[in-house]
Design a protein around this nucleic acid. Structure first.
Lengths: 218, 218, 218, 218
DNA sequence: ACGTAAGCGAGACGGTACGTCGCGTCTTACC
DNA sequence: GGTAAGACGCGACGTACCGTCTCGCTTACGT
């Protein structure tokens, strides 16, 4: 493990390597905004990053791997944020009657998206990438599923199956975010999180946070 | 009239043209299922269709145009079906207490998808095409918007904006359909239409049809 | 023979056929001047001639056949001219001490070339056609050979072989004509014929018309 | 100097580059012999050279440029030969009464042609290339013109213009060489050079070298 | 003069070559 | 050891011509 750490250090902390990878990431993001992910070539990326094309291939298989590396970093960043301040926030909000509860991580995600609105607008839109959308969707679904497991909510037996509702809701979130980005974020991230949280809860059939509906059950 | 017919014949009914275009369409659909739309080359299509590659370019600019032509035809077919029997059906259903109302065209769409389940499963999934998904989404949105205009429903003032809800719902529909296709259609198209209709109505904030029917039950 | 004539009449005298062929010939000649024979396509020819492309193929295999048909017609025309007035002219000239003798047909050829100077300038130049040049050269050689057979001249035994001289001379004629055409015919066709005749005779080793050199032999 | 050498190495002496270009040249020459220059496609060349087609385009615009590169190399080679031993030879010959003087470079050219007789036979013939023939002709003309400038010869005032004679002679040379090649070189290159030199001198009107040498004979 | 066989226009189609572009691999020299 | 420079094989792209074909029309001809 010590050796591994040294290894890792050697691999990732070489200034030239980190510099190259950062330049390539930046170039990818900028170019995606400019002409759409699908239209980008490896040459585009390396020219923009002022890096030799063969150097690109020493680090990545193709632009998809570069994208994924970036998304992994983002995921880590968001997760870190959630773990840092997430629980506090959620607890704080759930006790605050004025502000309805918001799914863990949702706000962090939106805040991140807000830092690269054009990138996500493009990636989720018609010049984006299907695989990216699916990854986004599956992330959503995973979060909703976890959230559901934590709650003790019951579902209507004669309503749509849970899996369908999850798929429904995780796609729906993309729609809401796209609306937000394509209209230049007409509301605060917090506001969107609230609305999206409400809509999603209703769609899934989670009524716990509204409190008005639980009495109906008996 | 005779001349007009000849004209029409020359332009659209040339057997060779129709045959070629049909073969190319079929090849595109089959290949999409097999390897995903993004991975298909024009050569793949023409080899499968047993048509010369240059002939492809005499009809289409690229595979995207071929796809769009196909989608246009589908749109026309669905529209025709809706206009033919749509009104009757909807009226019939709305008076039938057992079967809740279903958005016009939704069932027709699902029935069509049911005829090419693999194609839509792939096209809407990670090997699909972003532009296709967006087109699908925009179609959805358009339908919901029209439906809304026809209804006299009121929306909650303090809830999420209508546009956001529309974007939310139209993406959500894709999620539901994907769930349906990826699980080998575990329910009838009619059932899915009902569930999807209910979920969508709720998401948009249209409570009228639910509100009118629940009282009847007891 | 009567039947053959009828056949020929039917084939060649249909107004439409003759019209089409004439239009195609004209187009070929004009286009050759404009962009060089090599660069011409069948489509170019038919568009210029305002004839359908498929009609071209009903008459000719390719542009080379069209060219050859034209050259055949020219050959016939020149031959006719030579036979008509050729003998008279030659005899007249040979008896005229002021005007040196000129190979039969040479003047007729030059006169014809003078009517399409641009066409021959291009065809014999760098944008022309090798096969055309060779045909031209072989025609020349044939004429010189015939001329030689008619004369009783003797050749130097220790000089270059006759065949080589013929090849030399027939190519040389092309050079002279090219000079004439590329410099906008700086002299009359008759003058060129005389110069060319003299040069050629000397090159071949025919001294009969100079009369001063035969005495040297003994 | 070390740096310069490196530079040179990188630019011109990259083994792969030289190998590729050599292979393509060889393929072009062989194919020209086999099917004529006009009928050759880039694909033919690359398949024969066992080089990828796109590699061809990395070096040349088209087969014409490849041909010209080859001709340039040939020109350099011949020029080098002439400058090396040319003057000595010519001087030696001019003082040698048995061997008449030969235009500088002519013999070197013929010797080179003798190494690729089929190639030149085809290129100058009906399956050759007009542009090649013209280039050849212009080279000839240039040489004759230079030779003339070095000599103090006078020309007949009432004879054909100098330019015409030059054009005549430079084309004529092609004819002689063609005869030589098409008859499987029935004489030595030296013999052809002598004959061609004599014929050309006479055609141009240069009598000085004949006039100076004939008296020596008795 | 008029009916008919031909010539013709229109254009789909299968081929083949073109020249360009992007990919991923590789080698060599520099730092 | 990372990088720049760039040759190379591979294969898709979209275009351009070629030569063949089918199908109606129209037009010059021959009775």
């Amino acid at each position: 493990m010590g050796l591994k750490l040294v290894q890792k250090t050697a691999e990732l902390e070489d200034l030239r390597i980190r510099r190259t990878r950062k330049l390539l990431q930046r170039a990818l993001i900028d170019l995606t905004v400019e002409k759409g992910f699908a239209a980008i070539t490896v040459r585009d990326i390396t020219e923009r990053a002022m890096v030799n094309r063969s150097t690109f291939y020493r680090h990545y298989l193709d632009k998809y791997q570069l994208l994924n590396e970036y998304l992994d970093e983002v995921a880590v960043m968001i997760a870190a944020e959630v773990f840092e301040e997430g629980k506090l926030k959620v607890h704080h909000q759930s006790t605050n009657a004025d502000k309805p509860e918001v799914p863990a991580g949702l706000l962090a995600l939106l805040k991140h998206i807000q830092q690269h609105p054009d990138f996500y607008r493009v990636m989720l839109g018609e010049k984006g990438d299907s695989a990216f959308i699916q990854r986004f969707r599956q992330n959503n679904e995973l979060h909703y599923r976890r959230m559901l497991e934590l709650s003790e909510a019951k579902l209507d037996a004669h309503a749509a199956p849970l899996d369908m509702r999850l798929s429904y809701v995780s796609c729906a979130g993309i729609g809401a975010i796209l609306w937000w980005l394509e209209n230049d974020q007409p509301c605060a991230a917090e506001q969107l999180a609230v609305w999206l949280g409400q809509l999603s809860s209703t769609s899934i059939g989670l009524h716990f946070n509204i409190g008005l509906e639980t009495p109906r059950k008996p």
